[in-house]
């Protein structure tokens, strides 16, 4: 099962790959906000252009992005259908209790474009950042939450350990499955109950070895004097580069443009 990849990181050396994770994460948060602030076609167009620009900058094939929308296409269709019939105002089309208004059409377009944009931009983030860097970045960004006594470091540590052990877990699963198959365990066949039962010989050793591994890891970490985030320094020190500054400036312009458009121009959704 070596073909299992964690996250969707695509190796590359583009500007976006090299950007600071913190910047990428914060810009993405703002982006999400502004996708919903944009409430007319000009503002939306501005964001679409910025998104296309960002995806091009990653130098990752556009098909990769399109492929990532595959999973949500049903949701997009469903929500836009619902929105279609929910607009107020003068109906353009009427059949029974269903009526479509101009606002409804606008609603539907907006909601589907917004969802697709979100998928694209999360692609820009996850395609260009390794899961390890992502958790690292999250930890740094969430640091202020410490004042609420949220153990940011511990949560991030747990996340990165979990990520690290997913491939090991699958390797183990593979090994145990093979061992039980060698003893004639029939894993694929049979009805529902039989199949669940067939999983017991695999699940139990898997759980046991996971606990054993967790135990070992905890002991190994303690032996190396790990005691949480207090006073821990970092191996990778992040510094802002020129590309980060440019990205921030560029985003500020785009976001201001979105605000201006949204305030000055009429809102077709209402």
């Amino acid at each position: 099962m070596s073909d299992i990849t964690i996250g969707q990181y695509v190796e590359g050396y583009s500007v976006v790959h090299r950007m600071d994770v913190r910047v990428k994460l914060s810009l993405m948060l703002f982006y999400i906000l502004f996708v919903f602030i944009a409430n007319n076609y000009f503002a939306l167009m501005l964001i679409i252009l910025a998104t296309i620009f960002a995806t091009l900058l990653t130098r990752i094939s556009i098909f990769q992005y399109i492929k990532s929308t595959k999973g949500i296409i049903i949701i997009v269709l469903l929500t836009s259908m619902l929105n279609l019939f929910y607009g107020k105002g003068k109906p353009i089309f009427k059949s029974g209790f269903l009526e479509i208004t101009e606002a409804g059409i606008n609603n539907a377009i907006f909601i589907s474009v917004r969802i697709i944009l979100l998928v694209f931009i999360s692609g820009v983030l996850t395609f260009t950042t390794t899961p390890a860097d992502l958790t690292d970045g999250l930890e740094r960004i969430m640091k202020p939450l410490k004042i609420f006594h949220i153990k940011v470091h511990d949560i991030a540590m747990m996340m990165s350990i979990a990520l690290r052990f997913i491939p090991t877990f699958f390797e183990e699963l593979d090994k145990i499955t093979n061992a039980q198959k060698s003893r004639g365990a029939d894993i694929e066949g049979g009805n529902f109950i039989a199949r669940i039962k067939a999983f017991i010989p695999i699940l139990i050793p898997l759980f046991i070895s996971s606990f054993r591994r967790a135990n070992d890891l905890a002991a190994a970490m303690e032996c190396r004097c790990y005691n949480g985030g207090e006073g821990r320094t970092r191996m990778k020190v992040l510094t802002l580069h020129r590309c980060d500054i440019v990205a921030i400036v560029f985003s500020v312009f785009t976001f201001s443009g979105v605000i201006l458009c949204s305030i000055l121009l009429p809102n077709p959704i209402m």
């Binding site: 145990i176 039980q180 060698s182 050793p205």
Partner: peptide
């Protein structure tokens, strides 16, 4: 053809 794996003790359940 019976196969005993490397470190088979982890397959007991």
């Amino acid at each position: 053809v019976g196969l005993v794996f490397q470190y088979p003790e982890y397959q007991l359940f």
